[in-house]
């Protein structure tokens, strides 16, 4: 018992990143890692409610969903998907260089991730604006000329905005956290020995990315087979 506490005291004296209530750095890192995965589990359940609603209604109103889905802009969606996947690559590289203790490359790839995330949000804003112009936002001003099933077309767009909106809000939160991390990385707060926040944020960023990987086909690609894409 005495050996344990003296080891902890020894570590604490030398490692400024070790919080007082942990015995050693491994315990601290494992805790952060489990905590992040548990958090991602809660995120999975969070998005899960909207996915459930989507599956139920698509099962019930397939025709309306196909018609509504074909109103989305596949090209823009595909560009955005590419942008987001690239941002995951830059994020993975950022984690990699953090583990090597390469400060400049870490900052560079974090900024790249930030820029790609920003492009994604900008394109998303453009799409929302487009929907606004075409009266495709659910509510009083919703219009759908020539729709066979207007009310359920509107339901599709409710899900479209609910799901992409929740996703975008996660992107915005990620954007804010990235700004802080870039600042901290620039100040040299991370090292090859301790870069836990970078690694944990990487998990979050990849999760948000994966959610989009599911959203893109569900919202844009339901019935594009054999149709001209543009």
């Amino acid at each position: 018992m005495s050996s344990h506490s003296s080891v902890a005291a020894h570590d604490a004296a030398h490692d400024p990143n070790l919080k007082h209530h942990f015995e050693n750095a491994d315990q601290q890192k494992e805790s952060a890692s489990i905590g992040m995965w548990v958090f991602l589990l809660t995120e999975l359940m969070f998005f899960g409610g909207l996915f459930l609603a989507y599956f139920v209604y698509r099962q019930w109103y397939p025709e309306a969903f196909i018609a509504a889905s074909n109103k989305t802009d596949v090209l823009v969606g595909a560009i955005n998907t590419t942008v987001l996947i690239c941002s995951s690559l830059t994020m993975a590289l950022a984690v990699h260089y953090a583990s090597k203790g390469r400060r400049e490359l870490l900052v560079l790839f974090l900024i790249a991730t930030l820029l790609l995330g920003g492009i994604f949000l900008g394109v998303k804003g453009y799409e929302y604006h487009d929907k606004w112009v075409h009266h495709e936002i659910p509510g009083e001003h919703f219009e759908c000329h020539g729709c066979a099933d207007e009310v359920h077309t509107q339901l599709f767009f409710s899900l479209y905005f609910g799901m992409t909106g929740l996703h975008a809000s996660h992107m915005i939160i990620g954007f804010g956290v990235l700004l802080v991390l870039i600042w901290q990385a620039w100040k040299g707060q991370f090292s090859a020995k301790w870069y836990t926040p970078i690694e944990m944020f990487g998990l979050y960023w990849h999760f948000v990315d994966i959610v989009w990987i599911f959203l893109f086909p569900l919202l844009y690609l339901i019935d594009r087979v054999g149709r001209p894409l543009l």
């Binding site: 589990l41 809660t42 359940m45 969070f46 409610g49 929740l166």
Partner: peptide, 8 residues
């Protein structure tokens, strides 16, 4: 597991 579902 449950609370995120009421949240959404």
């Amino acid at each position: 597991l449950g609370t995120p579902v009421i949240a959404v």
